[in-house]
Design a protein around this nucleic acid. Structure first.
Length: 334
DNA sequence: AACGGTTGCAACCGCATTCAG
DNA sequence: CCTGAATGCGGTTGCAACCGT
């Protein structure tokens, strides 16, 4: 049976998000933090269902999301993890904190699966006698995959238990991220800076597409960057911050037209102040509301993770990095 | 230039799980 | 403990951009 869809109400907008909607959502979350998605449409005036808001945030607007091409290392990790965990994209994404599960899933479906198929095809052609044995070897592989998955789950659960029971919590709290993961973090770039880049990008696109924008006064240029980060934005009197009355009344398309005139478009070049201020604001939110953006992107170091990174570090440049891992189709992928 | 096919990605759908009353 | 609602997750779809003819 299943529950009826939450979004089949009349008047709920579907389809691609507009920059205006993105900004309204980001602005709201900046004030109230992610969560309580049910309240988001009502409080923001967005004609989207809560689910859509959550998805937009987690897959696109959330701080720390890296977009664009996957690196070879990321690719290897995905293949490794997919072989180990199967299509558990959320679990895989937890090992690639800068990527969303949707992104990884898409990348797998569009790039890596094809790549694997191609290689499988080559293998079958080269051996020439797969046929009857391929199905059994595949079932063995699937069986092995499940066993490994089970073992990993048990391993992870054990480790988590040990960590939870450990008296020496200070170390893990002080350094919740592995050194290797820390190395991957771009020095000096705040988690929100990445989000600012996202917003900057979408705003740039918006500016391109919006004929109105060019007509707008540049006199707002000073207020734009600060007001975007100012929690009082849109509250009119600037006094409302409770979720129940936190409607971003000023965050209307008209309001944003004024806010983001051509001279105010966020670009990587001019968004430095924005990034710094945004960082500060999010830190405030972190401390005030207990929302931990940083922690969102910091998966704990598990044995699996350690193995993955050790493997990545020790991996030869080509070809045989999967030797001994019994990863079936993954072997010889590169 | 026009058209059809392909690709990549954002967003949606529906089921599963979790949580609060 | 039960029930209904919220949230999480993976599969799938829709569509714009790209490419070849």
């Amino acid at each position: 049976m299943g529950r009826p869809p939450c979004c089949d109400k009349i008047g709920v907008k579907k389809g691609p998000w507009t920059p205006e909607e993105d900004i309204i959502l980001v602005s709201y979350i900046q004030q109230h933090g992610p969560g309580n998605w049910r309240a988001v449409p009502g409080n923001t005036g967005l004609l989207r269902c809560s689910k859509s808001c959550r998805l937009r945030w987690t897959n696109y607007l959330r701080p720390g999301i890296k977009r664009g091409n996957f690196t070879e290392h990321e690719e290897k990790m995905i293949i490794h993890l997919q072989a180990l965990l199967g299509n558990r994209w959320a679990a895989i994404a937890s090992y690639l904190p800068q990527r969303t599960d949707n992104d990884i899933k898409n990348y797998w479906n569009t790039h890596l699966r094809k790549k694997l198929k191609k290689i499988q095809g080559n293998d079958e052609n080269s051996t020439g006698q797969e046929g009857a044995t391929s199905s059994s070897s595949q079932s063995n592989f699937i069986k092995g995959q499940w066993e490994r998955r089970l073992q990993t789950d048990i391993h992870m659960a054990k480790k988590a238990l040990v960590e939870a029971l450990s008296l020496d919590k200070s170390d893990s709290l002080a350094n919740p991220i592995s050194p290797v993961l820390a190395q991957q973090t771009v020095p000096g770039s705040s988690s929100y800076a990445s989000s600012a880049e996202n917003i900057s990008r979408l705003l740039q696109n918006w500016m391109k597409n919006s004929p109105k924008s060019s007509q707008l006064s540049r006199s707002n240029s000073e207020t734009t960057q600060s007001s975007f980060n100012n929690p009082s934005i849109g509250s009119g009197s600037g006094s409302s911050s409770s979720p129940s009355e936190g409607t971003i009344s000023g965050a209307t398309p008209e309001g944003f037209d004024a806010l983001f005139s051509e001279g105010n478009a966020f670009t990587p070049e001019n968004s430095a102040i924005f990034q710094v201020e945004s960082k500060l604001n999010f830190q405030n939110i972190n401390s005030e509301n207990g929302i931990l953006f940083q922690e969102e992107s910091q998966a704990p170091l598990t044995l699996l993770e350690k193995w993955l990174f050790d493997d990545a570090i020790n991996a030869p440049t080509q070809g045989d990095e999967f030797i001994g891992m019994d990863l079936g189709e993954s072997a010889g992928f590169f």
